[in-house]
Design a protein around this nucleic acid. Structure first.
Length: 724
DNA sequence: AGGTTAGTAATTTTT
DNA sequence: TTACTAACCT
């Protein structure tokens, strides 16, 4: 009956069964941390210590939350409903909605996304006459967010914190920005926690309510928590002290977002008598991979100290390969060639990942994948809800739900074009300000007063009339039909239908997908919350594709084969990180490298290029300092055995660093697939998913030369285009 | 109003 | 290299 406990090793079992009192679980990479958390959750419920609604379980990402929910449900043998399980932000939002009135919001407040935050801050800065050229809003936003990460509302920020940023008026801007947020009945991401913590700090009744409610608290990825999150946890846990935090100091990679590694170190101080359990048995990776990762991370000071041991018995695993190449293009070819070889050997593409330091690096690999015809997926690019057309449609939806949403109004008032230009908009803004009303209401007033004339008057009257109609329809026919009708009647879908650009069909498809997704929610407001909090990109999760992503995005994932390109000083470790954070920055970069290596189950291929194309010009790079920190006994460098093995396996040779750039085409560039004649004729109009519409100007075997309308001339495989 | 062009700036990671 | 903005032209 307690067979779920029997499946754990002794340390894991201790972490699960130490239910009462504070507990810190230091869980190395691949040591079964998620299993411990979910089993512990189930254990608390199954032993009758608490009802599902009395456990608070916090994760860092939506994906982790979903996974935990599913696994708890499996352990319980029943759907896990009514749980307080989610990300810090989602749970914060849920709490804030219950007490919105206490912080000056109504429970229907909307959550601003990053884009809206910046636009709003920019408006505030312009109103305060701060030069937004000299002080870019993103920079100022960063300062404000760091304050929020530390749990500081404007009133708690001391004068000493005002640096030269924004002419020394960052604090004033912060206060003005917060005032605007309240006026618009909105909260930004940081507010979801900041407001909640202020509430718990100042309102004893609210705090007592949550103390009664939550008897057990579980926290995932504790090393990534920032100060507000820490205060939030401490306030909620201080009554019963049944808090269990799981984390790994070696995987702390979010300090730039305010994460405080200190939180782990102070855990014992704040929760006296806390037990600490270390999970060190790794069940994921081979011995060489673990050895390389351990050797690397040992170069960091100030660790809590864990030694990963292999939980499996396979000392015979492949060594970590280190490959030096002439330039970044050759690096992409090497990775592409190796992936082709792996596929030929029967490896699943979905078990291969290319993990890089920065997002812009994906492009080179993407192009290589396209050229080779390898299916791939980029994780964490532009997310669905960040796309222009989706944000436009959502702005319409927001305005429908909340007519006072000025940000949404400004976004769509002239979209599609309605002849509302800067002049008309200024008239509306002026009236709104002087009358103290939202832009939407101000427009209605100006129309009634006859101030607006001509085409502007007509189109705005039509737009406002439309909103009146759609609001009525919302009650009668529901949100799904209404959104679809609204997007059609306002001319938005028509706008994209008229658009001849290559992205237009995809955008229309996305809009259809949006309407479909809306059907999963009972109310429009619920959907908008989801949009703000769960910005994810789930499309195409299925299918056997190579995974391309950043190292940050890879945390928590694992793959049989991991490629780690771009290990060059300046890129990785990143120049910027080291300039801004010094030794601390370098240590965080090293942790990132550690995270990357430990994603690999069976093989890891690290590479570096001597020359890298970066923003159009070539940059000469030195190999990453991290390479020298990998213990030689776990590493294979090209030159001897590696070359010989590659040759026998028919793999592309790994070029010695600084080798002469070869003049001829590499052997692995010759397509191995059987050439066949294309069926597409020269002169045909075609459509390509990435490059858009174009005209075929030449054909050889299955390759086409196409002059694209927007993307220039390219040579692509015929299977990637469709007749236009 | 709206489209076009030229100039400039920025390039890390994300709930 | 691209993306964004500001100024300029229709």
């Amino acid at each position: 009956m307690t067979d779920y406990l029997a499946r754990l090793n002794p340390e894991q079992r201790e972490a699960v069964e130490t239910v009462d009192g504070p507990l810190l679980v230091l869980a190395g990479a691949g040591t079964g941390k998620t299993r411990v958390l979910t089993t512990r959750f189930a254990h608390i419920l199954l032993t009758g210590r608490a009802y599902p609604s009395q456990v608070l379980a916090v994760t860092f990402t939506n994906k982790a939350a979903r996974e935990m929910r599913e696994r708890v449900a499996t352990l319980l043998g029943a759907p896990a409903d009514g749980l307080w399980l989610g990300t810090f932000h989602a749970l914060g939002a849920r709490m804030l909605r219950r007490h919105a009135g206490l912080v000056g919001l109504t429970s229907g407040f909307t959550i601003l996304d990053a884009d809206d935050q910046l636009r709003l801050l920019k408006q505030v800065m312009e109103a305060e006459r701060i030069d937004t050229k000299r002080w870019p809003p993103p920079l100022v936003m960063g300062v404000i967010q760091r304050w929020k990460d530390r749990g500081l509302p404007p009133a708690r920020v001391t004068a000493a914190e005002d640096t030269d940023i924004a002419d020394g008026r960052a604090r004033a801007l912060y206060a003005a920005y917060q005032a605007r947020l309240l006026a618009l009945n909105t909260a930004d991401f940081g507010d979801l926690l900041l407001h909640t913590v202020e509430l718990l700090r100042t309102d004893a009744a609210v705090l007592a309510d949550y103390h009664r409610r939550f008897r057990y608290i579980l926290v995932d990825e504790y090393q990534d928590t920032n100060l507000v999150q820490y205060y939030w946890l401490r306030l909620l846990a201080q009554a019963h002290r049944n808090i269990c935090c799981v984390g790994d100091d070696d995987q702390s990679i979010y300090s730039w977002r305010g994460a405080e590694l200190e939180n782990i170190l102070r855990f014992e101080k704040d929760f006296t008598g806390a037990r600490i359990v270390r999970l060190e048995r790794n069940y994921r990776s081979t011995t060489p991979i673990l050895g390389a990762a351990a050797g690397l991370i040992a170069h960091n000071q100030g660790r809590l100290g864990k030694t990963l041991r292999s939980g499996r018995d396979d000392a015979s695993g492949e060594k970590v390969e280190v490959v030096g190449l002439w330039d970044s293009e050759e690096e992409a070819r090497m990775v592409g060639g190796r992936i082709e070889a792996l596929r030929a050997d029967g490896h699943a593409l979905a078990e291969i990942a290319v993990l890089m330091r920065a997002g812009f690096q994906t492009r080179a690999f993407e192009e290589r994948m396209i050229a080779l015809g390898l299916p791939y997926r980029v994780i964490g690019g532009l997310r669905f809800y960040e796309r222009q057309e989706i944000r436009d449609a959502i702005a319409y939806a927001r305005l429908l739900v909340q007519p006072a949403d000025d940000l949404a109004f400004e976004r769509i008032v002239n979209l599609p074009r309605r002849g509302v230009g800067e002049g008309a908009l200024r008239t509306i803004r002026d009236h709104a300000r002087s009358a103290g009303m939202p832009l939407f209401a101000a427009t209605a007033a100006l129309l009634a007063a006859g101030t607006l004339r001509g085409r502007v008057r007509e189109s705005l009257a039509a737009l406002l009339g439309g909103f009146a109609r759609w609001r009525a329809q919302l009650d009668q026919e529901g949100h799904v039909v209404t959104l679809a009708t609204m997007l059609d009647e306002c001319g938005y879908t028509e706008m994209w239908r008229q658009d001849r650009s290559p992205e237009a069909p995809g955008r229309l498809e996305n809009l259809r997908e949006l309407v479909r997704a809306l059907g999963d929610f009972e109310t429009l407001a619920g959907f908008l919350d989801h949009v703000a909090l769960v910005m994810e990109n789930d499309e195409g999760a299925q299918g056997d594709r190579v995974q391309l992503m950043t190292l940050h995005a890879a945390k928590g994932l694992e793959f049989d084969t991991v490629f780690l390109p771009g290990w060059e000083d300046g890129l990785f470790p990143s120049q910027r990180s080291m300039e801004e954070q010094g030794a601390r920055g370098e240590e965080e970069e090293r942790r990132l490298a550690y995270v990357g290596l430990t994603r690999a189950r069976r093989r890891a291929i690290v590479s570096h290029a001597a020359n890298r194309r970066i923003f159009g010009s070539w940059q000469v790079n030195m190999p990453s300092r991290f390479l020298a920190e990998l213990p030689p006994e776990h590493v294979n460098e090209p030159g001897s055995a590696a070359l010989e093995r590659d040759r026998r396996a028919g793999l592309p040779p790994a070029f010695p660093f600084f080798a002469r750039r070869p003049r001829e085409i590499e052997p692995w560039e010759t397509p191995s697939r059987a050439a066949r004649a294309t069926t597409i004729a020269v002169g045909a109009r075609v459509f390509h998913k990435k490059f858009g519409y174009g005209t075929v100007t030449g054909a050889a075997e299955d390759r086409l030369d196409i002059t694209f309308d927007k993307a220039g001339t390219k040579r692509v495989l015929d299977r990637f285009v469709d007749p236009a």
